[in-house]
C-alpha cells in the first residue's frame, strides 16, 4: 500500500465529525444563537462595527447604578441555574461559583460570596451594570442591556448571597 494511504486513513474520523458538524452549522451562515438573544434577533438594536448601518451609530447605554426596588425576593435555586447556563447569566464563564463545571479564571471566586457581607442592593447594582464601579470591566452589562430581566437578576443575587 502506498504510504499516502496510511496518512489519509487518519482523516476518516475527522471527516465523519466534520460531516456531522456540517449538519447543524451551515457554512458561511453562522447559526443564530436563539437562546437568550431575544426572538430571532440579529442584534441590530445594539451598537455594531458597521460604517453604514444604523447600529454603527447606536450609542452604548451609559453606566447605571440601579437601585433595588423593594425586598429582593429572589430564588437562589433558579439563580444557580441562570448563573451556570450559557444562554443566561453564564457567570461561570469567568467566575468560580457553586455548581461550576469548567469555571473561568478572570473574575473573582464567588463560591463563598454569601460570607462577604455585601448588601442585596449593592450586589444587585453590580450585576446590573459593573461599569459604575469599574468602567473598564469585561463583565457584560446584564441589567442595563437586558441580558437578564429584573426577576432573573434577583434570583442570581439570591444565589450569590446563599453561597456560603
Amino acid at each position: 500500500m502506498r504510504p499516502i494511504f496510511s496518512k489519509w486513513r487518519n482523516l476518516v474520523p475527522l471527516l465523519l465529525a466534520a460531516a456531522l458538524a456540517g449538519c447543524v452549522a451551515q457554512p458561511g451562515k453562522p447559526a443564530q444563537p436563539a437562546a437568550g438573544g431575544g426572538k430571532g434577533t440579529d442584534f441590530s438594536e445594539w451598537p455594531c462595527l458597521s460604517y453604514t448601518l444604523a447600529c454603527g451609530r447606536t450609542p452604548n447605554r451609559k453606566p447605571v447604578k440601579q437601585a433595588l426596588a423593594g425586598p429582593l425576593g429572589g430564588d437562589p435555586a433558579r439563580g444557580k441555574v441562570f448563573a451556570n447556563e450559557r444562554s443566561k447569566g453564564n457567570c461561570v464563564a469567568c467566575h468560580l461559583i457553586q455548581g461550576a463545571e469548567q469555571p473561568g479564571s478572570k473574575g473573582p471566586d464567588l463560591s463563598a460570596y454569601g460570607t462577604w457581607d455585601r448588601s442585596d442592593a449593592e450586589t444587585y447594582a453590580l450585576v446590573y451594570d459593573m461599569r459604575w464601579r469599574n468602567p473598564d470591566t469585561v463583565m457584560p452589562t446584564f441589567g442595563v442591556n437586558q441580558i437578564l430581566n429584573d426577576q432573573e437578576l434577583r434570583d442570581v443575587v439570591a444565589f450569590l448571597q446563599s453561597s456560603k
Binding site: W46, Q102, P103, R131, V138, T141
Partner: peptide, 25 residues
C-alpha cells in the same frame, strides 16, 4: 469599540487586561 448586547470589544477578549490567557469557560 465596545459593541453588542454584552458591550464587548475584540480587545475585551484579546488583550491581557481582558480575557487573554484566562480560562473562559
Amino acid at each position: 469599540a465596545k459593541v453588542g448586547q454584552f458591550n464587548f470589544s475584540c480587545a475585551s477578549c484579546h488583550t491581557s487586561s481582558g480575557l487573554l490567557g484566562q480560562r473562559f469557560r
